[in-house]
């Protein structure tokens, strides 16, 4: 499938499960987005995990002291106060609007599980058509364990009371996916 078509399909499928999808052209923009979103939601903390060096620098610049507190590992110390988790994703799957995250790091897991809002950044070039296209990559991670790999498609949800779809039960209440278009690797 053509990359633009993959991107389009990913956006469509992700939005179908209430994921907010935006295109960004560099990490700086992604960081800005996460900080602004946190402020907008009235959040006071942001837990960045596994960000590339350039993003970490932007984060310093984007968060004036006193607005949003940057939480540092170990996140076990902040289990109850992570508003926004900001992480990269390793791949995305167009067929189902899914993110794939190697979540072996416990801090990364906590940032993506216990935050109210998860903002994930994935390079456009890492979108694949379906999960089977990634079977080699994932299997090789697993053969090199211990490993914790997560497929995430939307925010946490339940329909356990009268089958009424309700978003945000145990995991994040919102999932935002920022597609980084500069990197085609």
């Amino acid at each position: 499938m053509h990359p633009t078509e993959l991107l389009r399909q990913f956006e469509e499928k992700a939005r179908a499960v209430q994921t907010v999808v935006r295109r960004v052209s560099h990490w700086r923009e992604a960081v800005r987005y996460a900080v602004d979103l946190t402020v907008e939601r009235g959040g006071r903390t942001l837990a960045p995990m596994n960000l590339p060096p350039e993003a970490s620098q932007s984060l310093e610049d984007a968060t004036p002291i006193g607005t949003v507190e940057i939480l540092r590992p170990p996140l076990r110390n902040h289990l109850q106060d992570i508003h926004t988790g900001l992480t990269p994703a390793d791949w995305a799957i167009a067929e189902t609007g899914t993110l794939v995250l190697d979540s072996t790091s416990e801090d990364l897991r906590i940032a993506t599980m216990l935050s109210e809002v998860h903002v994930a950044v994935v390079p456009a070039g890492r979108i694949r058509a379906d999960s089977l296209e990634l079977k080699g990559e994932i299997a090789s991670l697993q053969k090199n364990g211990p490993r914790y790999v997560a497929f995430i498609s939307g925010a946490s949800r339940t329909a356990d009371i009268e089958r009424v779809l309700t978003i945000g039960v145990h995991g994040p209440q919102e999932l935002h996916v920022l597609i980084l278009e500069e990197d085609a690797s």
Partner: peptide, 8 residues
């Protein structure tokens, strides 16, 4: 199409 979380 897929459940929200698939964990390996």
């Amino acid at each position: 199409a897929i459940s929200t979380y698939v964990t390996w």
